[in-house]
Amino acid sequence: MSNREIVAENLIKRYGNFAAVNGVSFKVSSGEIYGFLGPNGAGKSTTVSMMTTLALPTSGRALVGGFDAVSQAGEVRRVAGVALQEIGLDPLMKSMELLTIQAQTFGYSRKEAQARARELLDLVKLSEFTERQVGKYSGGMRRRLDLAMALAHEPEILFLDEPTTGLDPASRRDIWAEVRRLNKEHGMTIFLTTQYLEEADELADRVAIIKQGQIAVEGTPAELKASMGTESINVSFRETDQAEKAADQLRDMGRVQIDRKVLRLYMSQAAAAVPAVMNRLQAASLEPISLTLTQPTLDDVFLQVTGGRFTESEPEAEAVA
């Protein structure tokens, strides 16, 4: 099995005084899907540019498949496939032409390249549109073709920079399914940047949250969520004193916190405890207006890390009553 790792060692990219990437280190193992999550301008695309030989790091080292992205750029280009955030397709050309040229540039003969192009068009479900100029494709079709372009030379490592930004939900699911398949069936190592928590949660084995050019936290989605504390049951009442009475009934089940008319009960396995909570409230003749269950989400982690609105507003809640 070949080396399919991606390693960044203290990568820095400065433009004048501004550090777009300010000391990023990570290691993606062979066959792993690594999510690079961050808001716009956090340094995601700059990191991808350095890893994929498009930009030179100011300092630090990037290794892709064991090859140095600076001194062995040619080798990196051969082992890695790249789909950049900006879809790189000439709108005047047709999909078959683009894919054939792409494969040819990696040394396929014209015949091999055409066969490969047909295979890829089948894969991304564009076989019926080979005679249409790419400029007339929909956004989803262009993304799929761009992904096919990145796969033309059978790379072992795939870089996807915001692969679903601007896509409708159905096209997004198509891309996700394809990313999972490439990872499972071909053991491809996949480095994926995204602004969507759902996407990182859905696809990535491990996630790094990047903020102002630095990795703020890193871990599996489950670890990151766990770092945000446990689940909670939130019960709201008409009056503050009702909430206080309810607190007395529930104190032994977990940590209780009262915020005016809302009671929060922090505990593990909150969903299973909902009937018990309801029984106790009924026994005490307390009638809640609503009861919601809160799971810590990657959102919470993300917002806390990136200094978003987490402290001001309710975390994502799932209504159960």
Partner: peptide, 15 residues
């Protein structure tokens, strides 16, 4: 045109 539509970067990533 190639720079604007991004195809130029794609070509720079090939050998």
């Amino acid at each position: 045109r190639d720079i604007e539509n991004g195809y130029f970067d794609k070509l720079l990533l090939t050998p």
